[in-house]
Simulated scan of single mutants.
Amino acid sequence: MQHEALRELFCRRERRSVGRAREFAREALDAWGWEGARAGDVLLCVSELATNALVHGVPPGRGYLVRLLNEDAGRRLRVEVHDSGDGRPALAPPGGTRPEEDESGRRLLLVAALADTWGVGERDPGKVVWCAFTRGRT
């Protein structure tokens, strides 16, 4: 059950964009037959990565791109969030010193715990933060 292996949504720099990104992902997951706990994990990670982009990676006047790739004949899903901000996100160290670092780092800890793999790639300008899920794996 594979329809369109790639879906993209451009989001403007506004708070409601996180909900739009999540709904966009839900529609794609439904079309691709992803359901259950893995779908819930994907949706939560989309929300966390979109929130990180909105709060830390999108300069005024810019937006971010949410890209979903249904790979390997529908057995793997890759979520990418592209932004044009500087910096490279990292996991928060235990007992972080600054609350704002803790909050963003905790979002990535959640993504790292739920996704099978995740990482940060280069783009000009900015970066792409991604995570991937394998169907049937919990």
Rank of each mutant, 00 (worst) to 15 (best):
L109F: 00
E48A: 10
L43T: 09
V46K: 03
F133S: 11
S84E: 15
A53W: 03
D30V: 07
A73C: 07
G36M: 01
R106V: 07
E122C: 04
V128K: 04
H82G: 00
G57Q: 13
E103D: 05
A39E: 13
L114M: 11
G105P: 01
L91R: 11
V18S: 06
P94A: 11
F10W: 08
L6E: 14
S47H: 05
R62W: 12
G119M: 10
H56F: 14
H82L: 13
V81N: 09
A37S: 14
H56D: 08
L109Q: 07
G61L: 03
L108R: 08
E27G: 08
E8P: 01
P93I: 10
R26M: 02
R26G: 01
T97G: 15
R7M: 09
A39L: 03
V55K: 13
C45E: 03
L108H: 04
P125A: 08
W130K: 04
S47A: 15
G87W: 15
G74K: 12
T117V: 14
E8T: 12
T138V: 11
V79H: 13
V42K: 00
A132N: 02
P99G: 04
K127S: 12
T117K: 10
P59Y: 06
R13I: 01
P59D: 08
C45D: 15
L65M: 11
G105H: 04
L91E: 11
D72G: 06
V81C: 07
G40H: 02
D116L: 04
D30M: 06
A113L: 12
V66K: 06
D102A: 05
L43Q: 09
V111I: 11
V120N: 10
L54K: 08
A92L: 01
L9N: 00
P125L: 07
V58S: 12
C131T: 14
V18P: 02
P125T: 09
L9I: 02
V46E: 06
D83K: 04
E35P: 03
D30Y: 13
M1I: 05
A39F: 02
R98D: 12
G19H: 08
L44H: 02
V18E: 07
E8K: 03
A115D: 11
T138R: 10
R123Y: 05
P94E: 15
T117D: 15
F133V: 10
E100P: 00
L49F: 08
R75K: 14
R26S: 05
E71L: 14
P59S: 09
R62I: 00
E14C: 02
L44A: 12
V55T: 12
L43H: 05
T134E: 12
R98L: 14
F10G: 03
H82C: 01
E100T: 12
G105A: 05
A113Y: 06
R38G: 01
L77M: 04
E23V: 00
